[in-house]
C-alpha cells in the first residue's frame, strides 16, 4: 500500500525502462499507473474509473509528442494537473505549453525524485483545496 493511495499518478513514456524506473521510485508513495503511448494513455483516462490527480508525460514520443498529448487530454480532463518530463535541455514547444497554462512546469531527465514528489503532493493539495 503506497503512502498516499488516493494520489493516482499516470506516467506516459514510450520507453519501458523509463516507466519501470518511475514506478520503482514512486510506487511506495503514490498509486502509479503507466502508459506506453499517448494513445494508450488517452484510452486509459477514458476508461479509468478513478481519475489520476497528476499526469506526467515524456516529451519525445513517436506519433504524438508530450505537449500534443497533454493538449488533447487537458481539453477533456481540465481538473488534472499535467507535467512534461523531457530529455531535452531546451524546447520552445514546452515553453509555449507553459505560457498557454497547459502545464505548470516541466521536469528534466534524469529526474529528481524528491522534486517530483513535492510537486505531485502540491498539485494534489491544490486540487483538494
Amino acid at each position: 500500500m503506497p503512502q498516499y493511495p488516493e494520489i493516482r499518478v499516470l506516467y506516459v513514456d514510450d520507453e519501458k525502462d523509463n516507466l519501470f524506473v518511475f514506478q520503482a521510485n514512486f510506487q511506495r508513495k503514490f498509486n502509479i499507473i503507466t502508459a506506453e503511448s499517448p494513445l494508450t494513455a488517452l484510452k486509459q483516462l477514458d476508461e479509468e474509473r478513478e481519475r489520476p490527480v497528476v499526469v506526467i508525460s515524456d516529451m519525445r514520443m513517436p506519433k504524438m509528442n508530450g505537449v500534443q498529448f497533454i493538449k488533447k487530454a487537458k481539453s477533456k480532463y481540465d481538473d488534472i494537473s499535467f507535467f512534461i518530463m523531457t530529455g531535452f535541455g531546451f524546447n520552445p514547444e514546452i515553453e509555449e505549453a507553459m505560457e498557454a497554462n497547459l502545464i505548470d512546469r516541466y521536469f528534466t531527465k534524469p529526474f529528481n525524485v524528491n522534486e517530483i514528489e513535492e510537486v505531485i503532493i502540491d498539485a494534489w493539495k491544490r486540487q483538494a483545496g
Binding site: 525502462d17 523509463n18 524506473v21 520503482a24 521510485n25 511506495r28 530529455g87 534524469p110 529526474f111 525524485v113
Partner: peptide
C-alpha cells in the same frame, strides 16, 4: 540530449529505485 538523458535516467533513478 534525449539519447543520453534517458540512459542517465535509468542509471540514476534505477539506483535510487534499487536502494528503495
Amino acid at each position: 540530449g534525449h539519447e543520453i538523458n534517458n540512459p542517465l535516467n535509468f542509471i540514476k533513478n534505477g539506483c535510487s529505485g534499487l536502494v528503495r
